[in-house]
Amino acid sequence: MNLPEPFRLLVFLLGTMAFVGANAAYLVWVERKGAGRFQRRTGPTEVGYAGLLQPIADAIKLMSKQLILPPGVDATLFRLAPLLVLAPAMMCFATIPFSETLVPRNINVGLVMVFSFGSIHVMAIMLGGWASRNKYAIISAARIVSQNVAYEIPMLLVVITLLMVTGTMNLHEIVQQQAGGFWNWNFFRLAANPLMPVTFIIFYICMLAETNRAPFDMAEAESELVAGAFTEYAGMGFGVFFMAEYANVVIGCSLATVLFFGGWQSPIGVLPGLFWFLLKLYLLVFSVIWVRWTFPRTQFYGLLNLSWKILIPLSLFILLLTSAVMKLF
């Protein structure tokens, strides 16, 4: 990109917003289509060819609805929460390298930045639940905090393991290290960490839990908590929470692509990097949808047990193993 700096910034800002918006809208369509296919249904078919205009119809519907402010809510926090959910999700895209040259900001601490902004949405959902003055919303807010505290730990332990292998927090450099064939991807770097696939699985499970996707969607839990923290939200306020959920899924999958599957690196050396990045990204997004429509929601203590009793000891063991392997060989 050879544009002068302010224009370059503006282009990336608009591009990121458009990317997040388009993804949020059309991942809803993909999710509904996917859910249909997994259950031998057809999904949306009526609006446009194969229901392709459905997200636009949904958006118009949500935007034309009144933003109701229920009596007794904390008006400032209630209005602020959807913004605080979406804005950090968009911020995370600033360091994700989409291809060799297409990266909004190549920061040395990119990985830390993604994780620090990624954890803000927890606080924002908690604020939304707290401000709603609704018992379901508060239960949901309490659940989401304990869930995210539990899953942040194995997630970061896994990332520390990866950092020991890569030696840099710059996402661009992490991808460059994985150049060459697919056997150079971090996922297959068994010489540095013999349990690399397990590491990826822990990362993936934590990513599902952090983005509140089924089977870990404790925050929403329709059958027991109405819609959790989003119960009192109407119209686009509600819609923004969903946009943020899908934006977070895309970030989680981009990060998994960058950290484990060689980002824009092509496994066979043909086609541009952007193509490979998006292919890997959307395969992972598909797997997230696949998991959602395969497993029922876990119980809350089952969720915490999984983290504290299995994932954290396992990721600590992997951390020790990796340091031992790196020291000895």
């Binding site: 031998r40 057809t42 696949w290 395969t294």
Partner: peptide, 27 residues
């Protein structure tokens, strides 16, 4: 833990099998 994880993979294989079968909805 390994058996449990294996059963999860089995479940995912089954749903993916359903994904590629024809739909049964009558419009």
């Amino acid at each position: 833990i390994i058996d449990g994880f294996w059963s999860l993979l089995t479940g995912m294989r089954i749903t993916l099998g359903q994904f590629f079968k024809p739909t049964v909805t009558v419009q």
